[in-house]
Structures are given as C-alpha cells and as structure tokens.
C-alpha cells in the first residue's frame, strides 16, 4: 500500500487517489507554430525510467485536487509532494 501525503489533506492511503502520469510533460504553447515532433513528444513519448519520477495524482476520494508526487519507480518510496501549481525544483 502506498501512502501519499496530500498537501491539502495530509497523509492518505493510495485507495483515495487516481494516477495521472508524468508531471514533467508540458503541453506545447498555444498560438505558436508547433512541429509534429513536439506534438509526438507531448502526446506519446515518455522517458519512464527507473528511479525518481515526478507524477500527477488526483485525490479523487478526498479534496479532488490534482497534486504532484515525487516517487521512486523502483522502490515505490515517496520523497516529496507538491500542489498542482507549485513548480518542481530541479
């Protein structure tokens, strides 16, 4: 069982959350010429590596807010969580 710290509600079990994928993917900017390659990278291509991974989760059975979670894809250890509008510091 994963325990995820929701920045709005506190520590909750994974049963309350649903997953939203890689949080570092950025949608290409509007009103700008976007190449096919950029669209491919946004829609399809993912690094999905072993190790630390920033990802989106939604606290769907709680506050329903989207949050960002830094989790290790090898060990499932969770290091950090952020509100959706907080920037990931590199």
């Amino acid at each position: 069982m994963l325990y995820i710290f929701c920045p709005h509600c506190g520590m909750r079990s994974q049963n309350e959350f649903s997953y939203g994928g890689d949080a570092t993917v950025k949608r290409p900017e509007l009103n700008k010429e976007v190449s096919d390659k950029d669209w491919d990278n946004f829609v399809y291509n993912r690094k999905s590596l072993r190790g630390k991974h920033w990802e989106l989760w939604q606290h769907i059975s709680g506050c329903r807010q989207w949050i960002k979670v830094e989790r290790d894809t090898g060990t499932h250890e969770i290091f950090n969580t952020l509100k959706a509008d907080e920037e990931i510091s590199k």
Binding site: Y19, E55, T75
Partner: peptide, 13 residues
C-alpha cells in the same frame, strides 16, 4: 497497479 513502476512486486489494493 496503475502507476509507472519497475518493482516486480505489487500492492494489495
């Protein structure tokens, strides 16, 4: 299980 993972073991939920 529903999240990116390289762990060859799952969770109970």
């Amino acid at each position: 299980d529903g999240y990116n993972s390289y762990a060859q073991r799952g969770n109970l939920p």
